[in-house]
Design a protein around this nucleic acid. Structure first.
Lengths: 374, 374
DNA sequence: CTGAAAGCGCTAACAA
DNA sequence: TTGTTAGCGCTTTCAG
């Protein structure tokens, strides 16, 4: 084969003598078909350079006709940006993504996905551990940045990511002094204080706490805020703790709390299922809610609007958090690494429902009671 | 600069004369530091070739010491595999991922993520539409395959993906004759027949259906199975339909169904929130469940185990579906495209609870009733 | 305004 | 057994 022949062949096909006819059209194919250079094709398609509109639209038409799709891999290699953001939850160990269990994760992830997409990025769901299966999936995907939900103390994953130079933003303030790029968290202490005040205003004399045995920041901050509040108002703390991972344990702990001799007349439950469990326990002990027992739990679940009675919840606004996390991360990615970490504390929402109102409005009580209590 | 000098420089640094000192170590840096060639480094790290164990471990040690992370982008470009699988839900329009609303998506996505990770792939969450923001995010990420949940008729996204040669597996059978690589779906007709039989066995004389107004496959198949069943047993159909997207409409429809002159003594609701809505409606009309009204709805939500009374649900087993979808997709990706499409129909589970049992067992009734009925 | 050429970092033939 | 070389498909200076 002469040089000329070779040249001709590599023009019409994709370089290697004539084979690989089935593969998608490449940028050279488009260039050849449009009668321009590959540079012009690239510029035309990316809106770079200053080509005449005629050339631009011609190239686009040809590309369309050939069904040309630029190779993301090549673009990533060349530009160093993949448009991909990792998302992981490290709290609850191996199993990837616990969003089934907690509405918080679902909403947070949804908002984060949405926010990322709006800025041209996509989320990749990754496992909590660095070494998952045979080979490390983390280093198999080109990430522009990573969101870590609830990083644990001295999380090795975070450390490694940061060391390898990729921005990391965490949902939940990092516990040890993890070198995250930025973090977003709720003001858990203010939230607990606020809701305890609300319960006290509703007439609570002795407020109990249903908390977890683990040492994550959320549990720790919330519990100590409760203890501080008790000390401030001079109430003896009434606390039951259980391993939050275990859903069955929650029901038992709820029961235990209401079985105590110093039974509280109001309870705050830190975790999503606590409301249901407490309500069931109250029913078993013949306690009316809210007359005999005021109830609040931290949850994003919609079910608490429909229980009997509806239960007051503390919402952490996970959607807002997910969105903020993504904004900070993308800012860091695109801002060429702006040195000092950003910390953002966000407010919570107490959604007050019947379970924590001492006197529910007459109207809603009498109307539905008619047909239901036969 | 002489050729020799140039050679020397490009050995010690990363190719271009001495600059770019801050970037992560590349494969050449490792090769230089270990005193071997880059091929040897590549082989040692990937377990390819047949190097002496000494070399292998030496190279690994050096790579570790330098904090070497291989470039996923380069690997992807070279090998043509990214290890990335797209995940999208097209049913409910623009908004990416509706997993907040339906426990089905959450569980399906969780299982899919887990299954993919176990085989060395990660999931990327992508929007339903091809043209999302300014530029097309779909063509900005290198995908080895895609999972599409509930593709709509002649989905342009699916068509385009398939045309560009990437395997697509759908959760839910494709409606038009979309050219998906494979699909997985429940046997919705058998499920509906089974649950109607169950209701009839529990004593139902007139079973109503709460369905949707949209024409997706699930709604269509379930509704027609209901109508067929009615015809077979000689019951006049009692149907109320509402736009399933609108949560408020569901409650209204539930109410309408129980307000009819030909009020059913049993109801099946096709969508997740129907159980709660029907229960509320029943209460409003003074109907006891299950004594006056038998209830079943299709849902993955755990709340139905805790309602008063617990409600029988039809589970589509989304976890199993998510897992199967991923297996089929990865098989297609790694199996070099095995021609003919694979169709997989999977069974459902009817989780029978109090709401559809005419006579609940004595034991579970008397024990808890003690403390609760003061 | 357009084209040629140089790689991005890696893997896989092919040589040595 | 190890090293050399040729690209994967694209973007981006830098000449024309």
């Amino acid at each position: 084969m002469t040089a000329a022949e070779k040249h001709q062949v590599s023009r019409s096909s994709t370089s290697h003598a004539g084979r690989r006819r089935q593969g998608r059209a490449g940028i050279r194919d488009v260039a050849a078909a449009a009668g321009v250079s590959i540079t012009t094709v690239s510029d035309a398609l990316n809106g770079k350079g200053r080509l005449p509109d005629a050339t631009r639209s011609h190239v686009r038409a040809v590309a369309d006709r050939l069904g040309y799709r630029p190779s993301a891999a090549a673009r990533t290699l060349r530009t160093g940006k993949s448009g991909l953001i990792g998302l992981t939850v490290t709290t609850y160990g191996e199993e990837p993504f616990t969003f089934t269990e907690f509405a918080y994760f679902a909403e947070m992830a949804r908002a984060a996905t949405s926010a990322a997409l709006a800025r041209g990025y996509a989320l990749v769901i990754l496992p909590a551990t660095s070494r998952h299966s045979a080979f490390d999936i983390w280093s198999n995907v080109a990430l522009d940045g990573t969101v870590v939900i609830d990083p644990s103390d001295r999380d090795p994953l975070v450390t490694e990511l940061v060391r390898s130079g990729i921005p990391v933003v965490s949902d939940g303030r990092p516990a040890g002094n993890l070198p995250v790029t930025a973090w977003v968290d709720n003001d858990h202490e203010a939230a607990v204080r606020g809701l305890l005040d609300h319960l006290a205003e509703s007439g609570a004399r002795r407020i109990g706490l249903l908390t977890g045995t683990s040492t994550d920041t959320y549990t720790r901050l919330s519990t100590s805020a409760y203890l501080d509040w008790c000390e401030r108002v001079g109430q003896e703390p009434v606390v039951e703790a259980y391993p939050a991972h275990d859903p069955a344990a929650g029901a038992v702990a709820a029961d235990r709390l209401l079985a105590r001799p110093d039974r509280p007349d109001a309870v705050y439950g830190l975790f999503d299922p606590n409301g249901t469990d407490l309500l069931a326990a109250a029913r078993r002990y013949g306690l009316r809610v809210p007359e005999d027992l005021l109830l609040v739990c931290c949850s994003e679940s919609a079910v608490y609007a429909g229980t009997e009675p509806p239960i007051t919840t503390l919402s952490l606004k996970p959607g807002r958090i997910g969105n903020t996390v993504i904004q900070l991360l993308i800012d860091a990615i695109e801002g060429e690494g702006s040195a000092r970490p950003v910390e953002q504390v966000m407010p919570t929402d107490l959604i007050v429902r019947t379970s924590s109102r001492r006197r529910p409005p007459r109207t809603t009580v009498s109307a539905p009671r008619g047909p239901s209590s036969e």
